[in-house]
Design a protein around this nucleic acid. Structure first.
Lengths: 195, 195
DNA sequence: CTTAAGGCGTACACCATTGTTCGAGAAAAG
DNA sequence: CTTTTCTCGAACAATGGTGTACGCCTTAAG
C-alpha cells in the first residue's frame, strides 16, 4: 500500500519483526553483549529467521536503538518544562527515570555499533532538554552555579543509572526510586544555604 | 628463603609477573573484556609466558582483583573517620574517588570470575566504612534520614562512577572531579533546609 | 485450493579467543 | 662455565559467536 515497488510483507513476518524487536530491547537493556541466538529464542523464532529480517547483529542493534530513541524522544517531548525549574526538573526526572530503567544498557550496545558521530547526535538530542533546563535553573537562581553544567548533567545521568542498578539489585522498589531520584538530584542541584 | 619446598623464582620471572599484573590492572580498568593477548603485549611478554604464570584468564583476573582489593583496603584503612561526619565523608570520598578512577572497571571484570559469595564479601569489606559513616551521620543529624541508607550508598557509588566517566570523556579534570564529587555527595546527603 | 512468502533446522565456513604443546634459545644462579 | 629456569614463537585443538546456503514445511494471501 505504502509503496508498490516492494511486495507487502506477510502478516506473520511483521509480527515476527515486532517480537524480535521487543525481545531485543528487553535483553539488550540487561546485557548489551547478548547473543543473536538468545534474542531469537526469546522472540520465539529461529536464529535464521532473525537473519532474514536483519542482515546482521549490528543492524538489529541499530534498529533497536532507533526504536528506543524515538520512544524516548516522544515521551520527553510531552513534558512541560515551563514554570519553576525545580518543579520542571522533577517532572523531567520522573519521565527520564522510567525510560532509563526500561532501556538501560541499550545505550552500551548501541555504542559498539553506531558511529561516534551518530552517538553524539543521539545523545545531544536527548540531553538537550535537560541541558536547557539546568541552564535556566542556574540563571534564575534555583540551581547552584559553582559547578560546571556538564558535571551537573553527568551527575543526573549517574544517579539515574545508579537507581536502575539499585532496583535490579532489589535495594529499592521502582516506585521508591522515582521519589529518591527526584529528591537526590534536586538536593544536588540546589543552591547551598551555607554559601 | 621463605620456603625451601618451592625453588625460588628467577629474577626475570618475578619481574614479568609484576609487569603482567601492572598491565592487567591498567587495561582491565578500562575494558573488562580485554584479551589475554593484549595484556601480554602491553606487559612486554609473550602470551605463552603469561600462561606460564597464570593458569587461565580467570586466575589472572582474580590475582588482579586481589591486588586491587588489598590496595584499596589499605588506602581506605588509613583514613580518619572521626569528627564531624561531613568532614570525615569528605576525606573518605577523596580517597575513594582516586581509587575508583584508578581501578574503575576491574570490578566488572571480577564479577565475571569471582563467585557471587566472594563478590559479596569484597563489596561488604569496602562498603563497610562508608556504610558506618553514613549511619553515624544520620544519627548525629548531619545527613538526611528520609532516604534509605542503601540508596544513599548507591548514590555515592553512582556519583563516583559518573565522575570517572566524565573524566574519561574529558568533561572535567581529575582534580576538579575531586572537589565536585565531594560537594555533590555532601549536598545530596545534607539535611534539607526546607524540611 | 493454489501459490508464493516466510519459518525453521541443519550444516557449514569463518573468525577471535582461550588454553596447550613443543623445541630452540636466552638469561639467571651457582 | 655449567646447569637450571624461564622466555618466546609457532603451531594446534577447542570453544563460541557471526553469517550463509539449502531444503522442507507451514501459513498467509488471492
Amino acid at each position: 500500500m505504502a509503496a508498490e515497488g516492494v511486495t507487502a510483507k506477510r502478516a506473520d513476518a511483521r509480527r515476527n519483526v515486532e517480537s524480535i524487536l521487543d525481545a531485543a530491547v528487553a535483553l539488550l537493556a540487561i546485557d548489551p553483549g547478548v547473543s543473536v541466538n538468545e534474542i531469537a529464542k526469546a522472540a520465539g523464532v529461529g536464529r535464521v529467521t532473525l537473519y532474514g529480517h536483519f542482515p546482521s547483529r549490528a543492524a538489529l542493534v541499530e534498529a533497536v536503538s532507533l526504536r528506543v530513541i524515538a520512544s524516548t524522544d516522544q515521551a520527553l517531548g510531552a513534558i512541560d518544562l515551563e514554570g519553576d525549574p525545580r518543579d520542571a526538573m522533577a517532572r523531567l526526572l520522573e519521565a527520564t527515570w522510567r525510560l532509563t530503567h526500561r532501556f538501560g544498557a541499550v545505550v552500551i550496545a548501541a555504542s559498539g555499533v553506531l558511529t561516534p558521530e551518530e552517538m553524539r547526535r543521539v545523545h545531544e538530542g536527548l540531553a538537550r532538554r535537560v541541558h536547557a533546563l539546568v541552564e535556566r535553573g542556574r540563571d534564575e537562581g534555583a540551581f547552584r552555579r559553582d559547578m560546571p553544567v556538564v558535571w551537573q548533567l553527568a551527575t543526573i545521568q549517574a544517579v539515574l543509572h545508579g537507581a536502575s542498578a539499585a532496583v535490579h539489585r532489589g535495594d529499592v522498589t521502582t516506585d521508591d526510586a522515582t521519589r529518591l531520584v527526584r529528591d537526590t538530584v534536586l538536593a544536588a542541584l540546589a543552591v547551598t544555604s551555607s554559601a
